[in-house]
């Protein structure tokens, strides 16, 4: 840290960076982890250079906190997901999103308590996860199932976003591994109306409904 900068300014800057990273910079963190692993000083520098100073010792900074509050989305839920680019962008407007690709765990991506793991079936039909539902992509399917196991260990919810694609060999396993499969059946109580959903589930439900109904 440059000695000439006031400690308070540095802390504020860090908080701002952290706030942004929460929303926009998540994909960068894993690569930094990998960079650190590859460092010539690995693993010593992991001990010698803690990424952040302990927060507990910091004095409260009302101004910075207000600034952070404005920057953070209303929901603090982070979506870790096997997602299409379009869905990642759409969710990213409202939520912190970490789109994972095959091999992401080796880059240091992890699920944390409070995250929601979202697996979008449409993302398995093309792109990096293509074939994950099929017999020729068993390794990819098992990798997704590892993510669901990890989510369970951390108490993170697992949501499957269905699509109009015909079910394949791995589809049932993904359904079975999910806490919720979206879209939900539209069964509004004739008297009480529809069951209210949290903003996050509601948003995911809209995405899944568009995928299921859009192509048919």
């Amino acid at each position: 840290m440059p000695a000439s900068l006031p400690t308070r300014a540095v802390r504020k800057a860090r908080r701002i960076v952290r706030g942004r990273r929460r929303v926009h910079e998540v994909p960068d963190s894993p690569s930094r982890a990998a960079e650190r692993i590859l460092s010539l000083r690995y693993p010593e520098h992991l001990v010698a250079e803690p990424q952040d100073e302990p927060e507990a010792e910091e004095a409260p900074d009302a101004e910075a906190d207000q600034s952070d509050a404005r920057r953070e989305p209303a929901s603090v839920t982070r979506v870790v997901g096997v997602l299409t680019g379009a869905t990642a962008r759409r969710l990213g407007d409202d939520l912190a999103v970490a789109a994972v690709t095959p091999g992401a765990r080796a880059f240091g991506t992890m699920i944390e308590p409070g995250d929601v793991l979202v697996v979008e079936r449409a993302a398995l039909q093309s792109g990096p996860w293509s074939t994950a539902e099929t017999s020729s992509g068993t390794a990819l399917l098992l990798e997704i199932l590892e993510w669901t196991d990890e989510a369970r260990e951390h108490g993170a919810a697992v949501v499957l976003l269905d699509s109009a694609d015909a079910p394949n060999v791995g589809t049932n396993l993904l359904r079975g591994a999910a806490d919720v499969v979206l879209p939900l059946a539209q069964q509004a109580d004739p008297v009480l109306g529809p069951v209210p959903l949290s903003p996050v589930v509601s948003l995911l439900d809209r995405v899944a409904r568009a995928a299921v109904e859009g192509d048919r």
Binding site: G85, T101, G103, F107, G127, T131, A139, L140
Partner: peptide
């Protein structure tokens, strides 16, 4: 290489690192 991927998340999101399992003929199908 990793830094480059980190700096361009939109590119990183399209890169799959897959294990070199033995089933190469199957992999070639995609």
């Amino acid at each position: 290489l990793v830094a480059e991927l980190g700096a361009t998340p939109e590119v990183a999101a399209r890169v799959a690192f897959e294990y070199p399992d033995s089933d190469l003929p199957s992999w070639y199908r995609k």
